[in-house]
């Protein structure tokens, strides 16, 4: 809006930013990913080491290992120091259930994995059919041109205001696209690669990921990359107007204040 001298109140309005389905699937995702992370860390704690290759027993040291994580000393037969040695397992407040209980952790993990998959399918089907992906997430030619500019703006915590805030900025679009079409599929694929039954779908397909233990390591890394995304996502929610963002993901309504200077 060119006229910034007008009374800001007159320029303030609410518009429907998120469809009901996007809001519901978003919050189901919050629940599912939280349960998946915490039960996943419970499962990790049962064998607190990561490897590269098909097996955990190849004669090579582990990539990562918790010090004192195994009663017999180091994981590898050679007793060789792993690439990374960390002092402790994940604490009880980070895992579900909070005590050592692998069977229950697996129940949580595999139940919420299904919730995550079904939720994701519903979201994708809706978002493709309603052209949400094509319309709101696909960067335009203009977006690509403004990539460097947007990057600098993000570093300075300068965010679009007014009408500009109605649409996702280019880094935001890329972050969502990378999450939905990159990270989430990778986390599913590496999860499936750990299943001995799914290994038999096409014997050898797991080698594409470097073998079962590599898949387990990639699954772990991908999970923490999702955590990194969430941290940045929530940070952005705070710095671009916490209540406005939160309201828009609950009621759907997002406030645009065109007159307000940054």
């Amino acid at each position: 809006m060119p006229n910034a001298t007008l009374d800001p109140m007159a320029q303030t309005y609410l518009y429907r930013r998120h469809s009901l389905l996007v809001r519901i699937t978003h919050w189901i995702n919050v629940i599912a990913l939280t349960a998946l992370l915490m039960s996943g860390l419970q499962i990790f704690n049962e064998h607190p080491a990561l490897y590269w290759g098909d097996t955990s027993y190849s004669g090579k040291p582990a990539l990562l290992e918790v010090k004192g994580g195994f009663p017999w000393g180091r994981q590898s037969e050679t007793g060789a120091r792993p690439l990374i040695e960390v002092p402790d397992k994940f604490p009880s407040w980070m895992i579900v259930p909070s005590g050592t209980w692998l069977a229950m952790g697996r129940r949580w993990h595999l139940f919420f994995a299904w919730l995550f998959v079904i939720n994701g399918i519903v979201y994708l089907a809706h978002s493709l059919a309603s052209r949400h992906v094509q319309r709101d997430l696909k960067p335009t030619r203009e977006d690509w041109r403004g990539l460097w500019h947007s990057f600098k703006d993000h570093l300075r915590l300068r965010h679009p205001h007014g009408e500009e805030a109605r649409r996702y900025n280019v880094l935001q679009k890329l972050a969502y696209l990378l999450l939905i079409f990159g990270l989430f599929p990778l986390i599913l694929l590496t999860g499936w690669a750990m299943s001995p039954w799914l290994n038999s779908v096409w014997p050898g397909w797991v080698d594409v990921l470097g073998g079962r233990q590599s898949a387990r390591t990639l699954h772990f890394i991908a999970a923490w990359t999702v955590v990194l995304f969430v941290l940045i996502h929530v940070f952005q929610v705070f710095v671009t107007g916490f209540w406005n963002n939160l309201r828009s993901m609950i009621t759907g309504r997002y406030k645009i204040s065109s007159g307000e200077p940054s």
Binding site: I43, T55, S56, Y57, P196, R212, Q213
Partner: peptide, 12 residues
């Protein structure tokens, strides 16, 4: 074959 334990490790 590869033996996969529920704990997370594998051996061939």
């Amino acid at each position: 074959t590869r033996h996969d334990c529920v704990e997370g490790w594998s051996a061939i």
